[in-house]
Design a protein around this nucleic acid. Structure first.
Length: 505
RNA sequence: GGCGCUUUCGUCUAGCGGCUAGGACACAUGCCUCUCACGCAUGGAACACGGGUUCGAUUCCCGUAGGCGCUACCA
């Protein structure tokens, strides 16, 4: 057992965009696999033909490419345990369903949806189980000839798992310890639907995990209640000795209020719940994505990794490699985590700080072009260097940096009141002269000349600099004045000052 | 309703019988400073409640309450 190579899987349903909680589940699987030098499998669970959404599978794959999480095996990745798309495994499931039928551990049920609804109506807390199966229409109550006749007639039956009541089933969970549930509270789950010749999740899941030699099932807590059923299925097949180990992760909850995180919360509070932007093929509705919102993939990974797990040290910024090294299922928390999206923006800020100016510049250049600014890479990079520490996202740069590329046309009234003093026009006139006399317009040369002039005249540094800022920026913000004037260059600096002197009197 | 999981600052969390209950985000204040930010510093802020066990419980056990999930021919 200890020598069995680790094999884990991420197995989404292609029913829409990948939820951020699903991304975290995949991340934990990935970290676990990499840490143990194991395999990470990508399986598509499309056993519900009615919920298939075109484009969902490609979306999921693209999301992981963006995040930098790689698979070793599975849909589009190859491997010798395929096919990895459940809809292509019908022939396999049929064999195993028959095996359960032959051994009497499952049976055919012919109850129509209407009959089931009626039963639920008639009996409070109705459950299809040992207590009730005797009065339903199934192969345990119907004569064999009748069952055969119905099947021949193409009746849309289902196969149900025959659960023996009164047994305590223990599931050992790597995060929660032993979880004990009595089989009497479990219902005879539908394992297979003759209508579309496909199994339901439970059967497909067990058969695939067994055949794909999955060693650890790391999934969301919503699966915990059905884990005993899964254990019973492994037992029914005689696979208990190679049954994977389970770990049920705490859920991601709404930032406020009650319940688990949903797409609605993102729309309502203004943050993405999907890794990538998603356009619903039916409604045309567009949901924002982390990528399009300007998050760096490393930041998303780091943020998600720490939602429900932490290394036990005070380190908060961890690279993917560090996460691989330090991840530990035993250190996962047990209770659901409210989704603290504000902290997510802080992580992005940290990663922006850690990036070089050159790495951030392409994204900034895109924004500049969209704003109709034709700037060189070099100039864009200079502004990024000056301003990146102030933002959480590259896109926040534009409103803060506009003045570098566009001269002010009007001047902020509040700043003008506070900073444009009686002596300002005269001082600015003089400053125009001081700057005009400079051949070297570097930061250092300007600084030396301007400081000397201020000192010579006995002016107040704050008066001069703040008035000057108003002439170049149009308001009272921005980096150091000499950074700004050096970036603008002598000609533009003097032109802006002249224009301001005219406008401000 | 039934079953299961869960419960430390507003939020994410550390803690695995004895601590001034630690960190981070957010918030507040101060410093830095030519402005706005960034940064730095400081501060306020938590063991759900009730019983046990123990010399001693945030920590172990049992209740209660709250929260979450499951309860489909969905995953």
């Amino acid at each position: 057992m200890a020598t069995t190579p680790v094999r884990v899987r991420f197995a989404p349903s292609p029913t829409g965009p990948l939820h951020i909680g699903g991304v975290r589940t995949a991340l934990y699987n990935y970290l676990f696999a990499r840490q143990h030098g194991g395999q990470f499998i990508f399986r598509i669970e499309d056993t519900d033909s009615t919920r298939f959404v075109p484009g969902a599978e490609e979306y999921i794959l693209e999301a992981f490419r963006w995040l930098g999480l790689s698979f070793d095996e599975g849909v589009t990745f190859g491997g010798d345990k395929g096919p990895y798309r459940q809809s292509e495994r019908r022939h396999i499931y049929k064999v195993y369903v028959q095996q359960l039928l032959d051994s009497g551990k499952a049976y055919l049920a012919f109850d129509t949806p209407e009959e089931l609804a009626a039963a639920r109506e008639a009996t409070p807390n109705f459950q299809y189980d040992a207590r009730t199966r005797g009065r339903m229409r199934n192969s345990l109550t119907l004569p064999a000839e009748e069952v055969e006749r119905l099947v021949e007639a193409g009746e849309k039956y289902v196969v149900r798992f025959r659960i023996e009541p009164g047994e305590d089933v223990v599931v050992h969970d790597l995060i929660r310890g032993d979880v004990r549930i009595n089989s009497s509270v479990l219902d005879d789950k539908v394992l297979y639907k003759a209508a579309d010749e496909l199994p339901t999740y439970h059967l497909a899941n067990i058969v695939d995990d067994h055949l794909m030699e999955v060693t650890h099932v790391i999934r969301g807590e919503e699966w915990l209640p059905s884990a005993p059923l899964h254990v019973l299925l492994y037992r029914a097949f005689g696979w208990e000795d190679t049954m994977p180990q389970f770990a049920h992760l705490p859920l991601l909850l709404k930032p406020d209020g009650k319940g688990k995180l949903s797409k609605r919360d993102g729309d309502r509070l203004g943050f993405p719940v999907f890794p990538l932007e998603w356009k619903d093929p039916v409604t045309g509705d567009v949901s924002r994505g982390y990528r399009e919102d300007g998050y760096l993939p490393e930041a998303v990974i780091n943020f998600l990794a720490l939602l429900g797990w932490n290394p036990g040290t005070e380190q908060e910024i961890l690279s993917l490699q560090e996460l691989v090294e330090q991840f530990d299922l035993a250190k996962c928390s047990k209770a659901g985590a409210k989704f603290d999206y504000v902290k997510g923006t802080w992580f992005n800020h940290e990663y922006i700080l850690s990036k070089s100016d050159a790495e951030l510049t392409p994204a900034f250049l895109d924004i500049l072009r969209a704003e109709g600014i034709d700037a060189t890479e070099e100039r864009a990079r200079a502004v990024v260097g000056l301003m990146k520490s102030r933002v959480n996202f590259v896109k926040e740069l534009w409103p803060l940096c506009r003045f570098f590329f566009v001269a002010p046309t009007d001047y902020d009234e509040k700043t003008r009141k506070k900073r444009w003093k009686e002596q300002s026009p005269a001082q600015m006139r003089e400053l125009v002269g001081v700057l005009a006399a400079l051949d070297d317009f570097s930061i250092e040369a300007q600084e030396a000349a301007v400081h000397a002039w201020i000192e010579r005249q006995g002016y107040k540094m704050g008066d001069v600099m703040n008035a000057w800022r108003l002439t170049l920026v149009g308001e009272g913000k921005g980096p150091g004045m000499f950074d700004i004037s050096a970036f603008l260059g002598k000609q533009e600096t003097l032109a802006r000052m002249e224009r301001a002197l005219e406008a401000l009197q």
